[in-house]
Design a binder for these strands. Structure first.
Lengths: 340, 340
DNA sequence: TCGGCGTGCTTATCCGATTCAGTAGCGCAG
DNA sequence: CTGCGCTACTGAATCGGATAAGCACGCCGA
């Protein structure tokens, strides 16, 4: 139970605590032989620096924060977050940086959490996800000078961002569907306040226009299964119903599959479905769902690496992650086709 | 950027830092008027205690840790964890305790993480999930004297546990199916090393025996969708195939639904399906899945509360959470029935 | 009038690391 | 043999709080 401190090691090695600190942190001031002796003793005794003491004298918490602003219900079924977190941690482990997590229902609460963490110096920096087009968190971060990495498009203001080309991915999906022969294509979008929803919607319109088509519909939702189901029902009830629908996440796309089947609309014979996120969920339904797929763990890892480099005093530019690629599965086919 | 410290407040209030500390921590040593003046100044300046300094002098990190030992892939689709975490945080927020999270692939790595956190005094205590029958983490926790709360059955040794009666829940599911007229019932279990898998399997056998039945089969899996699908395929291919299957989580149950449909086996007409966990997933497939449901967020909150009380010097007993209740949906019916 | 006792505050020490200003010892040039 | 410079180390201040010990003051009863 007695805590092992640097002075225990100093005593065992017969030197001062200053010497021990030099040795352990690899800085000049001790001879190579003494350094090795000290390191050996520290390792043997299983010494590890007390994070609080270290943080106090270095003015660094060696911890970063992630605030997720979503309701616990929708979070639960979104496979994205856990993968992203796991990816971040694989990178943070290298620099022995811990991850503080908070799940809150809205942005107001997330600003509170950020304020608390920063005021108490619990974190050195933050990862900001789910960026809104007008995001109330950014002015706060900027005015308080909090180092942060944005998960999303780079913005004026200099905060580094890690992003992938949503527009290109959406375009690929549209091109794919048009290539199959679809002309009436609808889009079931995510939260309209989110920046990447707006980017994707704009790209969707542009891609359709390039093919000389106009969208069958664009529906805003809140990413939930219920919203995806409802949107699908509405779209299929329309007089000139679409032959293909793209959904902004995997949860809603599977909802679409489920609703279509309940209504007796054949997937993919009468309706093709594409999901904007990929996860096991897309392979869990029948027919399996064609999706825009990318390596979410790597995405998380890149984000963490960018933040670490920012905290180390670097000025990392924004990092463009790989663009999602379309993985064709069973839910897409030529309109009116007989093959699954 | 300049940090606001307790001495800034002392200066503004014209008292010593000791007085400020007394006032802020609500302990005797200052008059009520001075206390109020100091509190007002602190609030006005937006002062918050530096977590490192506080942790150093109190020898408490005001942080608890949660190590999840699962692969990122399976974690992603398990809605359970995020809900549990959200529930924990609602409780931790009250005592201003932060949550440190680590996702690792196996127990060996999780012991490493625990060692690191404890040696560096980053956490005051831990939540331990996914208990194995023989769990390598427990002797480590015990020998190092790390305060911990187990999520699972209480064990000899005195660590408080928060649990719910898995045996009763499984029994309810079996009774329900037998009540519908099923006699050939199979069980697709989770990881066999997990304690609650063993408890449930034992309860399953006992409940079947009580009805004078013997299980059609008990299959061990790793909780993944693929394992659930494979188990279902195997069970349906058997000569005397079951008329009902209980699955240990929602992911596998939905896999079962999907496989049955692909094989042309009607659910629930020819096969009834019950999920051992409930989540939106169960309502996302068609037919919707009958499940053993409980309030996972409350479960997380109770766990956090127990840990906080333990850290405050209390000796909380183990807490038995509410037993999961069976929520009947479309995936269950009398064997050979024609109604959905 | 003095001792005794709270009350209300200050001062000093501690937590466990980092870090900087010294300093002892030694080799070597002048 | 003096002094300079270098290496290898020591001692002490510092980070920002918590807290125990100390002290001045006023009030009370004897």
């Amino acid at each position: 139970m007695k805590r092992l401190t640097i002075s225990d090691i100093a005593e065992r090695a017969g030197v001062s605590i200053g010497a021990v600190s030099f040795a352990l942190n690899g800085r000049p001031g001790v001879s190579e032989t003494t350094r090795r002796r000290i390191l050996a003793i520290a390792a043997e005794m299983g010494w590890r620096p007390n994070a609080a003491a270290r943080g106090l004298s270095e003015s660094r918490a060696h911890t970063v924060g992630l605030v997720i602003a979503r309701s616990a219900d929708t979070l639960g079924v979104e496979p994205f977050f856990m993968k992203f977190i796991a990816g971040m941690e694989s990178e943070l482990a290298i620099t022995r940086t811990a991850l503080l997590l908070q799940v809150v229902p809205d942005h107001a609460r997330s600003i509170e959490a950020i304020n608390d963490w920063w005021a108490e110096r619990r974190v050195d920096g933050l990862i900001v996800m789910d960026l809104w087009a007008e995001d109330a968190r950014l002015p706060v971060l900027e005015s308080m000078g909090i180092p942060a990495v944005l998960v999303g498009r780079p913005r004026p203001g200099g905060m580094p961002a890690v992003w992938s080309d949503d527009a290109a991915a959406v375009t690929e999906a549209v091109d794919f569907l048009v290539g199959l022969g679809h002309r009436r294509i609808a889009r079931v979008a995510g939260l309209p306040a989110l920046e990447h929803t707006q980017v994707r919607t704009a790209a969707f319109h542009a891609a359709m226009e390039r093919h000389g088509l106009s969208p069958a519909a664009v529906v805003d939702t809140d990413y939930t299964w219920a919203a995806g189901a409802r949107a699908t029902r509405d779209l299929l009830a329309a007089p000139d119903r679409p032959t293909a629908i793209t959904f902004d996440n995997d949860v809603m796309a599977t909802a679409g599959v489920s609703v279509a089947r309940q209504l007796g609309v054949g997937v993919p014979q009468e309706l093709s479905i594409v999901a904007g996120d990929d996860s096991q969920l897309c392979e869990m339904v029948f027919p399996t769902v064609t999706a825009l797929s990318r390596d979410v763990q790597a995405y998380g890892a890149h984000t963490a690496r960018t933040l670490v480099s920012l905290l180390d005093g670097g000025s990392p530019g924004s990092f463009q992650d790989t663009t999602a690629r379309l993985v064709a599965r069973q839910s897409t086919a030529a309109p009116g086709s007989r093959t699954a």
